[in-house]
C-alpha cells in the first residue's frame, strides 16, 4: 500500500505532522497551484499501514487519516509495474 495526500483536498494545516509517530509527514516548503503548502512525505514506506494493512485486513494506526480535517490522507494500492523511474540512493 502507498500513503498519499490528496492535493485537491489538503488545505495545509499540518496536523498530520503533529501526530505521526514516525514523523513521516514533514512540513512542506513550496505552495502548489492552489497556494496550499502540502506536507511532504519522508520515507512513507515506514508507515505501518503501508506494510501491514493488507496483511491484517484493517487500518492499523491511521491517526493521520483520522485527524486530517480535510479527508486528504489515504492509502492506495501500489501498481506493481509502475513505469516510474526508480531512484537508487547512493
Amino acid at each position: 500500500m502507498k500513503l498519499i495526500i490528496d492535493e485537491t483536498r489538503c488545505k495545509g494545516c499540518n496536523l498530520c505532522t503533529l501526530v505521526c509517530p514516525y514523523k513521516i509527514f514533514q512540513e512542506g516548503t513550496k505552495p502548489n497551484h492552489k497556494g496550499v503548502v502540502v506536507p511532504v512525505l519522508d520515507r512513507p514506506e515506514r508507515c505501518t499501514n503501508c506494510r501491514l494493512q493488507k496483511l491484517y485486513g484493517r487500518v492499523l494506526c491511521g491517526v493521520c487519516q483520522m485527524i486530517c480535517p480535510d479527508q486528504a490522507i489515504t492509502w492506495v494500492d501500489e501498481d506493481p509495474y509502475s513505469p516510474e523511474k526508480v531512484v537508487v540512493e547512493e
Binding site: R9, K11, M66, P69, D70
Partner: peptide
C-alpha cells in the same frame, strides 16, 4: 468535497 471548513478546523476530524 472539499468542505467549507477553514484550514486546520477540528470539525473535519470530528466528522471522521
Amino acid at each position: 468535497m472539499p468542505h467549507i471548513y477553514c484550514t486546520g478546523c477540528g470539525n473535519g476530524t470530528v466528522i471522521n
